[in-house]
Amino acid sequence: MSKRYWINSLCVEVNEKQVDTVSRHIYLNKKDFLSLTCGPEHILPQGAKWGGLEHALYLTYTCLIDYNLKSVADDLWSASRKLFEKHLEELYPQNLVKNSPEHFANIFKNYFKNIYRAPASPEKMAFRIYKTAKYLLENVDGDPRKILDLYLNSAKKRDAQDFLNWLKNQKYKGLPNGDKVIKLWFRTMCESKELELGNGMWNLQRHELAKIPMPIDKNIISAGIALGLVNVTEGRFEGSFSKLYEPFNYVWTLVAEKSQTLPLELDEPIWKTGRNCRRKKCQPSCFFKQICPKITNFMFKGEKNMPSKEWDILVWPIQ
């Protein structure tokens, strides 16, 4: 019998047959699938070298910024690249903290004034980066690449999941936070130059990263519904998509296992797929077009008026 979950009055069931279909498709076409990993975060500012200090700061600072729902991730990373290209010297932690937070905010807001998410502001986002620069100076000589060593020296053990949990506990000290963002930062800091997990700036090996679950957000859930991996058997749901974490985490972990792919490797390709599923915009080039049942009986209420307080409210199935 297929695995079922009850969330309030909603009952959903994992479609084991479709899980096998999707997993096999990924496994047989893995090179094409993993080519979708490349995202805007992999386009470095001019002059920055892969694995260098500038690369690490670019990833760390950008992952601190809440971007507006009217914008897309491409806009965020593009703005960050322009900031780094024009003001690189001022972004090194030792230089950034020589001046006041207000001084940096005046520079920062010229690049991000249309990017931030209310009720935040460019000034608040700039202060986050300023706070992080101080943390980096005080703990790792201003170098995010040394954060893994900081953890190893304090924890006295080498465990990727424990390291991720440790990072989450540092959020009040200035590091990126939020499950989606911190796993994006974690993944990109662990990627090799070929965008494969392992041997990155944080030198964790591939097998050490095997148990790290992928982040579950609107796009990941949208892809899971559209592909028919999780189906409604009874009831209706209207609420925060975060309440559906368990069934979708289970199903994507299962897909990773069956396709012999790490869960974190699914993140970027499935996120890109789900972004179109969420908007009901099937693309001719979609990796899953041959096997997708194109289920569209769901919506996010905040999609109609962005940004909206209802941005995370999932309605499933639509009446």
Rank of each mutant, 00 (worst) to 15 (best):
Leu164Glu: 02
Thr62Pro: 00
Pro263Val: 04
Val255Tyr: 08
Lys30Arg: 15
Trp202His: 05
Val255Ala: 09
Trp166Asn: 07
Trp271Arg: 07
Cys63Lys: 03
Asp143Pro: 00
Glu90Arg: 14
Trp185Leu: 11
Ser154Ala: 10
Asp267Glu: 13
Ala210Asn: 02
Ile216Ala: 01
Ile182Gly: 11
Pro307Arg: 01
Lys168Asp: 09
Asn231Ile: 14
Leu229Met: 08
Leu83Val: 09
Glu89Tyr: 12
Leu91Glu: 12
Lys304Thr: 08
Met201Asn: 09
Ser222Ala: 14
Gly51Cys: 12
Gln46His: 02
Leu195Gln: 09
Asp179Met: 02
Ile7Met: 07
Phe163Ser: 02
His207Lys: 10
Ile225Asn: 10
Arg187Tyr: 03
Asn8Met: 07
Lys70Ile: 12
Cys292Val: 03
Leu136Glu: 03
Gly302Leu: 02
Pro293Leu: 03
Leu96Ala: 09
Asn139Met: 05
His87Cys: 14
Lys180Tyr: 11
Gly174Arg: 10
Val230Ser: 02
Leu262Lys: 05
Glu268Cys: 05
Leu64Glu: 05
Lys156Trp: 01
Gly228Pro: 04
Gly142Glu: 11
Asn199Pro: 00
Ala79Lys: 06
Asp74Pro: 00
Met189Pro: 10
Glu208Ser: 10
Ala133Asn: 07
Lys131Gly: 11
Cys38Val: 13
Glu310His: 13
Ala48Glu: 07
Lys3Ala: 08
Cys277Leu: 08
Phe241Leu: 14
Gln319Glu: 12
